[in-house]
Nucleic acid binder design. Structure first.
Lengths: 376, 376
DNA sequence: TTTCGTAGTGAATCCTGCT
DNA sequence: AAGCAGGATTCACTACGAA
């Protein structure tokens, strides 16, 4: 075969699938920027990246019960400055852009520590943001000291190479997955724990392993079977395991031998998804929780309104924050109800009543009204 | 009055409240950067900003039924380039930083079009991000073309002026508002519609009016009554209306006469909540501190009494000076508890128990009894 | 077999006032 | 300014052993 014919053949293969030189279904144990430099231009269908977050944690943190929080203290998450993190981010993103096909897309996950730097760099490099996606954690770690809001989500950015890019989006799959409603930009999943969490000698192998359900949705939404997915921060290979299950090719990059070893073993054991596993991906959603404060915030009950129990033995006033107060005592609808009755607990929703058309109605009726008004 | 006395008086007022020169409860009809230049350094308790999103929309959009989507096409949302938007963002944020008190905080709301640029600038200017907050829209506009995920949220950034800043966070209020669970970083509210949406001649006055419930939570969480809240992109004055309701001062800035007019009328009609409703749950530390020794001094616990933890693993004896001793070790209720458990710290009030009617009760109960008996 | 209580843990920028 | 000491602070889920 002559050179020309080889080129033609190679060209034909590039159009339909990844070039033969791509190290398909392989982990490159290298620095991510170096490894990407070795990959050809415009050869990857999708990049999923979970880069270091640059958390900048302070001292130790203990739970109220005194136990110690196992924080992310790994060297790979340390940077000398914000500027150094910015530089690193722009370097790996530039390589990612080079090796991405013109109609490919990139996903990056992060938290408020780094996602604004990442998003800003993505825009500066010419990417076109398609969505930002919120991963709502069903079970986040609380804020133990009561100093901020519970940090209960992470953010993903989904971007194409440019405004005119013809990217893959499996709209029907997403709608089916979401019970025939359009898939929204906020996704709820539990954090990775239990059987899914990789352990070695009783300890987690990687401090930030992502749930497979998250990757499952990303890959199902934005790749086709046979596509090549690159993960430049492969870790324990969640991307590879899910890609294999969904019939996509994958390429992983990671420097750490411990992670590479665990990932190889894990991916070798990964099997195509069966029906029962697919069911667990679509866990039935519980009825949404409504806090009494929401009714106050949304004007269903004005602060200053007087509530009473059904026998009108106690009268209490609604506070601006959804608290109730009565004779100098104050608390939530449940706490105050319990205190006044001298009971260990109390369902404030059924205990407290408001006046409506001359009669007393339990505030639970307002909750139902609110639910009907706000839920589709 | 001499100059010195004037300065002293002015100084005293600065410490306790905003300087007299602040245009409290006023709308400045000016460019936001110009207007902020006219305000004094370190004079504002909180800034809430809803800047232009730089949406960069393409052509017209119609719903599947053919009706037309009324998009944000106003001049104030147009910028020549991403760089121009970046420059504008850094300029107004720099002014905001200058006029903000050292312990003040800033909130900025945005979408994926601009929030990464905003967040990146916030970090570069030295602000310290405390949380990013997700406003989950209960009723977002669908993606009519089926080309992306439904854009169902917006992002807010909450930041202090620096890492060491002692910002206001009404933890208890937030917990009460959320039915005795820590408030999370994802908030659900309906979009602003119905009666709340300001209209003129049947058309909405402002294309991006925010729901009052959103501002209500922000102001309740991070300001105190009497604080000064500045909104440099005032629009139709949601921030002012909610601030007035909650007994906070406000300053608004907007160039557009139509918005200013609507905002003035709206705020004039807003009713402040009365004192009782405003009494938000205060942190226990607002209550006077009680030293363990006071309980001993006042006969609530006799020296020589034996205390134990709830599992009765340790037994310690109360000293005449309010110390505790156990197996030759002695110290405060907190120190000894920490030492015995090998923990870095310990809340002695909840750790140590005394015997009461055959059961164990935490000594914190005695403190409550003491407080009730001694406080008016 | 089911239920219940205890223990453990997760990408966390996690205290405040006084000397 | 740094150090010390008082004392305030957690939600959802998993695993496991006991009843």
């Amino acid at each position: 075969m002559g050179v020309l014919e080889k080129v033609k053949r190679a060209g034909a293969r590039v159009a339909k699938q990844a070039p033969a030189v791509l190290p398909l279904d392989t982990i490159l144990r290298q620095d991510c920027i170096e490894a990407m430099r070795g990959l050809p231009d415009k050869s990857i269908d999708m990049i999923f990246a979970d880069p270091p977050y640059n958390l900048q944690l302070g001292g130790d943190l203990n739970r109220p019960d005194g136990s110690h929080v196992d924080a992310v203290t790994d060297e790979w998450d340390k940077f000398d400055s914000l500027a150094a993190y910015d530089k690193f981010t722009r370097e790996w993103l530039a390589q990612a852009r080079r090796i991405l096909k013109d109609d490919g897309t990139i996903w990056v996950i992060g938290s408020y520590h780094n996602i604004f730097k990442v998003g800003s760099a993505i825009q500066d490099l010419g990417f076109w943001i398609l969505n930002d996606i919120i991963w709502r954690k069903a079970n986040p770690m609380p804020n133990f000291k009561g100093t901020r809001f519970t940090n209960a989500h992470e953010t993903l950015i989904w971007a194409s190479k440019g405004e005119k890019s013809r990217y893959t989006f499996n709209y029907r799959s997403m709608k089916t997955l979401n019970d025939e409603l359009q898939m929204r930009s906020d996704w709820e999943f539990p954090i990775c724990s239990g059987q899914e969490r990789l352990k070695k000698n009783g300890h987690k192998v990687h401090p930030t392993q992502k749930p497979e359900a998250l990757l499952y949705r990303v890959l199902l939404a934005c790749t086709k079977p046979g596509d090549v997915v690159l993960d430049p921060f492969f870790g324990t290979g969640t991307t590879g395991a899910v890609a294999k299950r969904l019939g996509r090719h994958w390429i992983g990059i990671d420097r750490e031998g411990v992670y590479v070893e665990a990932a190889l073993e894990r991916i070798a054991a990964a099997l195509p998804l069966d029906e029962s596993a697919l069911q667990t991906m679509q866990a039935p959603k519980a009825a949404p929780r409504v806090a009494f404060g929401q009714l106050v915030e949304n004007g269903y009950l004005a602060p200053g309104t007087v509530l009473s129990d059904h026998k009108a033995r106690w009268r209490a006033t609604v506070g601006a924050d959804g608290s109730l107060s009565c004779d100098g005592q104050a608390g939530s609808i449940h706490k105050l109800g319990a205190t006044l009755q001298g009971a260990p607990s109390c369902n404030g929703w059924t205990f407290w009543h408001y006046e409506d058309q001359g009669g007393l109605k339990p505030i639970d009726a307002l909750r139902q009204t609110y639910l009907l008004a706000t839920q589709p």
